[in-house]
Design a protein around this nucleic acid. Sequence first.
DNA 1: CTGTTAGCGCGTTCAG
DNA 2: CTGAACGCGCTAACAG
Lengths: 339, 339
Amino acid sequence: MTLGRSAGGVRLQDVADLAGVSMKTVSNVVHDYEHVSEAMRDKVQAAIDALGYRPNLTARRLATGKTGMIALAIPEIDQFYFAELGRHIGEEAARYGYRILVEQTLNDVEAERAVIRDRDEGLVDGVIFQPARIDTLEIARLRPGTPLVLLGEAARPVNTDHVMIDNTRAARDGVEMLLGRGRRRIAFLATVHGDITESTHLRLLGYQEALLAAGVGLDAHLVLQSEGFGFEDGVRAISSAIAAGVEFDAVLCRDDLFAMAALRGLEIAGRRVPEDVAVLGWDDTAVARYSTPALSSVSPDKQALASAAFALLEDRMQGYDGSGRHEIVAHSIIERATT
Amino acid sequence: MTLGRSAGGVRLQDVADLAGVSMKTVSNVVHDYEHVSEAMRDKVQAAIDALGYRPNLTARRLATGKTGMIALAIPEIDQFYFAELGRHIGEEAARYGYRILVEQTLNDVEAERAVIRDRDEGLVDGVIFQPARIDTLEIARLRPGTPLVLLGEAARPVNTDHVMIDNTRAARDGVEMLLGRGRRRIAFLATVHGDITESTHLRLLGYQEALLAAGVGLDAHLVLQSEGFGFEDGVRAISSAIAAGVEFDAVLCRDDLFAMAALRGLEIAGRRVPEDVAVLGWDDTAVARYSTPALSSVSPDKQALASAAFALLEDRMQGYDGSGRHEIVAHSIIERATT
DNA sequence: CTGTTAGCGCGTTCAG
DNA sequence: CTGAACGCGCTAACAG
């Protein structure tokens, strides 16, 4: 078995032999080095074509120390938000000439630690990581290795770059929109049992700020509680609130999935959307457009998020080694049929 | 700049020096080689921990010829079906100890050709590829390099492995279910202008077979036409059929997206689902569960698909070099609220 | 049970 | 403008 040979099994040396030149010369034409005579270039190119030579990327990597790959570490690729983020990051990567290695952490602490560990194995040139379980402090404590950019809420300022939207502000904007439409009893769906991330809290905070600023009192009953992150959990949360007699005329949801759950729960309870209850989702994923009625949603600028993350990462890969930067990307409220 | 050194910058040799042993011994403990004395193992492990040694995977690759990565080439990671497939493939990969490199072809011919080309660069040990644009014949013509498994419909038997569901049979099953529920005027949403893949045709074929077998005549007007693959295209297709006075009491959709579009179009037209019209989606993606009413859908066993693909690939990576194998995975009809 | 050594394929000095 | 030689870090024969 010819270990280490790429599929073609053709090496630089083979091309050099056929063309009757040295490896360096072949390398020169492969890399479009300027100072190569026309005749030489043609001869070498002919040999390359004849043999179907493809440079072995692994060898090139070992020699250059650059892998041309960046890791995207996210909880689950099949969650709408992450899938869309993945798409944008992938496109951005293609633009910069990088490939994307997707690591699904599946909300597992060990898998998240492994992501950090991978940085030290020279597997990738950089990593874009949205942590869900491990503390940002733990990340900061680890030996600084390959460039890293964090996505989502950094619990506290850390010594690594990260990009996010202003969750509190976005929640406030969402609630203000709802208030502007005349809604007064706005529920929040939902705080999730065992949620250790910061984002729900930040959103809840913005929700409360907007209500207070508008002189609408807070009602603890309007902050719904969910046992988990799943669709069914969301449905149960809103259904039991309704069953318990909680009255509301709007629901701000922590993500589009819960918004879909709200739609379902309201349908079951015979409430009309948006006549009786307005529903505002979060993330503005594709499902918001496809749902009937089409879902209004708080929309983080995912494209901007992806390009900001990549720009930060690229900067570090180019050698920047300063302290952690903190980037906030824009959001907007997309109104569709549910508000 | 210390090119090629992994982030830690500590090499096998460094560990060996510190522990006062040879590289081979260090290598042995790194690989959990059995015949190493306890004392030696502890001493080496201590050195590894002290230095924070991490093996450089690129170097290992060059030496072994195995990259430990497989490429998943799909059109768009943010399409529900592919995102879910990605998740399963990723889990399967983790089980086998491989990492997944995601290549989005974005339905671009050149990007698809590049996927095939990458095989020859030793970038990955194998590729799982769902082509959307290039002909399977073109794939077959290319030099056989790294193991390849195709997903989806292979237009004709080719000399590479592939796994798919029986589209025709699944469509027949779907229509039979609808017939069993008393529906007689079943529409198909939709044939798409410019679609070069085989799958819609196969599904349409099954649809027709079931209708004929049941003695229900075919009506060309019931085969709807769409200008494109998008949600809006689907809505337009069904809306114009309704506007044109086409009568139907059920719709078999080519994917869940079109099923969502059908729900929207029917809502606009004031038709009730499922009372007036039953809707059957395809792919059974998450959106089917989240939609209200919850969508019935033809459900390919994605888990089985992923594991079959991986098994085939693994087999080839282990050296199998026979002719192309053709695997069919199960499907089922999941009934929810729209039928 | 442990040490030595020759590659893996390419990039890149440094001479010519 | 071209060629020879060494190194990237690790693996796996082959000795010992």
